[in-house]
Simulated scan of single mutants.
Amino acid sequence: MEVVIAPAEELAVLAADAIEALLRRRSDAVLGLATGSSPLKVYDELARRHAEEGLSFAQARGFMLDEYVGLDAEHPERYRNVIATEIAERVRWPAEQVQGPDGLAADLPAACAAYEEAIEAAGGVDLQILGIGTDGHIAFNEPGSSLASRTRIKTLTRQTRVDNARFFDGDVEKVPTHCLTQGLGTIMDARHLVLLATGRQKAEAVHQLVEGPVSALWPATVMQLHPHATVLVDEAAASRLQLADYYRQTYASKPSWQGL
């Protein structure tokens, strides 16, 4: 696992660099897309590169991490709509090439199975963008999730709903109780994991992710078992890391050609 500590704006550029390098190398690459606040600066940077430098998503595929269950198709906080607004429409990404789990399906288990099959049929995810919750969840894999889990329906914790209430006019009761989410096993199948975290409120989760024991109590710790995982954090989110100086020294000594 590589840990990079830098200002939030620099972290977004690094993540965008990795995505651009992948797309320049393979125009039909498969990207894993996260929602929430963590990837927004990355999406802004990718949109800028599309507009100013011609970065193309025309042949790429995208798969969302998760989706709320039961939100109306036109609801602005439905994740399919959020991804369309924050990245897909801004880079002219064909809508049919960006998929998410169907939170309005009549048969939710069948929808989850179909989503797993779609990811597999696309050849798997090349680079997965991730954020992390204050309780250590990635996607909507709450504490206690199986480290081998696949796409499935999950019940959100009260804390996650409180954290997400800011997107629902501050009203936690408007936040859905259920979601469909890629499982930890599904996420771990991606060839490169890139997690971004900023702010002191993420410091304990980041500490556990990087330096704690692998445990379902902190679901993101499963990333310690991945062969190519990158953790991008600002100084506040890194404030609990015991080996922060070592991570800084390692990154400062990294060859410029290596990238993430």
Rank of each mutant, 00 (worst) to 15 (best):
V3P: 01
I5V: 13
I5H: 00
A6V: 06
A6Q: 09
A8T: 11
A15S: 08
V30A: 15
L31I: 13
L33Y: 07
A34I: 04
Y43L: 11
A47K: 00
R48C: 03
H50C: 09
A51Y: 02
Q59T: 13
M64N: 15
E67D: 11
D72A: 14
E74D: 15
E77L: 00
Y79D: 03
R80H: 13
A84T: 01
A84N: 09
E86P: 05
E86A: 14
E86S: 15
I87D: 12
V91Y: 01
V91P: 04
E96W: 00
P101C: 02
D102T: 11
A106Y: 09
L108T: 06
C112D: 05
A114D: 14
A118S: 15
I119A: 02
A122P: 04
G123P: 08
L127N: 05
L127Y: 10
Q128A: 11
L130I: 02
G131T: 07
G133Q: 06
G133R: 05
G136M: 05
A139E: 07
F140T: 09
P143V: 00
G144M: 02
S145C: 14
S146A: 15
A148M: 11
K154M: 08
K154I: 12
T155G: 12
T155C: 11
L156W: 05
F168K: 02
D169T: 08
D169Y: 00
D171G: 07
P176T: 10
C179M: 14
T181H: 11
T181F: 12
G185P: 15
G185H: 07
T186R: 01
M188H: 10
A190K: 08
L195P: 09
A197S: 14
K202W: 12
K202C: 14
V206R: 08
Q208R: 15
L209Q: 10
P213T: 01
W218D: 02
A220D: 09
V222G: 08
Q224G: 01
H226P: 13
H226N: 12
P227Q: 07
A229M: 03
A229D: 03
A236N: 06
A236V: 04
A238E: 05
Y247V: 00
Y247N: 01
Y251S: 13
A252H: 10
P255W: 09
Q258I: 08
L260W: 14
